[in-house]
Simulated scan of single mutants.
Amino acid sequence: MWRHIASNALTFLIVALFLLVGLVSWGSSQYRAEGPLDQAMCLQVPSGSTMRSVSNQLSDKSAITSPVIFRMGADYAEKSSQLKAGSFRVPENASMEEIIDIVTRGGRNTCGTEVIYRVGVNQTVVDVRELDPVSNRFIEVASFNPADGAPPEEYIAVRGSSDTTYRATIAEGVTSWQIVDALGSLDILDADVSETPAEGTLAPDSYDVRPGDKVSAIVARMETAQARILDEAWASRVDGLPLETPEEALILASIIEKETAVADERRQVASVFINRMERGMRLQTDPTVIYGITQGEGVLGRGLRQSELRGATPWNTYVIDGLPPTPIANPGRASIEAALNPDTTDYVFFVADGTGGHAFATNLDDHNRNVARWREIEAQQGNDG
């Protein structure tokens, strides 16, 4: 009898083992299989959430087939404790495994509302946009200049929301004073900077920011980034340049930045100034004259007068020899690299050509003809206006 009982028990254990293996196999396939979500969605994970609350939320939205399998999969992958707060885009038919990866990966929010503070040469613009999870594209909700008065309701409604992310985007060619002034005026930041950072030392780029961040901390990130860019560019510079230090390269790069917004022209413009320096010619560039007038604090907003072109300032390259004593703006990576790796040309002149770019010349006669054409274009544009 005991032998019969033992045989039955063994049979039962074998059957139970097969059932368990089958159940695990089925659960694993369910965990990795395409999910039931028929269109992408935004999943909000508040701070303090648990895998249980997330799995129930996903189940309520018909994004997963089983909250239990979802949680068991997270436990098995040792990711249950790695849940991140934020707003995440869950693609259509995402498997439970893919969703676990999305909510535990970290980094920036991939869904929700984004506020971008665009610091430009002429003004700061605030863009409020919201991600449409289905198309995976941002839709503009509001755009305004904070200097024009009270912000719109669309901005006020999302400011401080848990699924709102913020970025400060700094344009190339903005001065250090403009950057600090713009960041200090933003209502989400702590304006704790009283002195303007050295001109040219802040890297134009896009920076993630959070409400309550100190402007000084953001400036420090910009300074670190610019120092790294300059070090890398200086290490890979071409031989024979008339630039003795990285600081001189930064000064030249800032002039290139202010002279052209056309990416393909930067190295040509750089070659003009390098050729002038090598021949002992003055740089004679208008942006340096403007900087001598404004000191980087705001925009001149008008054309230069002849008296200003002749006026003596440390930055007026119509009067001084060589480079000015400091940069005249914060150049981007491309302009820094152009200053240290210019095109090889014989150009020593350039003037606007009416297309947004410039006409280059190797001699004064050709340059004068290019200038005459530009004057004709200016006159025609004035008549059209």
Rank of each mutant, 00 (worst) to 15 (best):
R129I: 02
V115P: 06
E195H: 15
L186P: 00
A182Q: 10
D213V: 05
R159K: 13
N145D: 15
G120P: 07
R159L: 03
E172W: 04
I170T: 10
V180C: 06
L131V: 03
S216M: 06
G120C: 09
T113A: 05
A203Y: 06
R167L: 13
R221Q: 14
E153R: 14
P133S: 02
Y117N: 11
Y207A: 05
V174I: 15
I218D: 03
E130K: 12
E195I: 15
G120T: 04
Y207C: 05
D148T: 09
P204M: 08
D127Y: 10
T113D: 14
F144V: 09
P146C: 11
V141W: 03
D148Y: 01
W234H: 02
R108N: 11
P197N: 12
S216P: 09
Q178R: 14
A150E: 15
D127C: 00
R167V: 14
E223G: 11
V125N: 10
N136R: 13
V215D: 01
D181G: 02
A171G: 04
W177Q: 04
D205A: 14
D190F: 07
P151S: 04
V219E: 01
L230P: 03
D205R: 09
I179C: 01
R221D: 09
E154K: 01
W177L: 03
V121R: 15
V209L: 04
G173P: 13
A142F: 07
R108W: 10
E114G: 00
T110I: 11
A191V: 07
P197G: 13
L131R: 14
A198W: 00
F144G: 05
D205T: 03
T165V: 06
E199N: 12
C111M: 08
S135Q: 13
E153P: 01
Q123L: 06
D163T: 13
A157H: 03
G107L: 10
I139M: 10
G107A: 09
E114K: 14
K214N: 08
W177R: 01
Y166A: 11
T124N: 08
E195G: 12
S194M: 13
P133W: 03
D190E: 15
L202A: 09
E140I: 11
R118G: 01
A203H: 07
N109I: 08
S135F: 02
P204I: 07
V209D: 04
T165R: 11
P133A: 04
M222R: 09
E114T: 12
E199A: 12
T124D: 07
E199D: 12
A191G: 04
D205I: 00
I179M: 07
S135H: 04
A227Y: 00
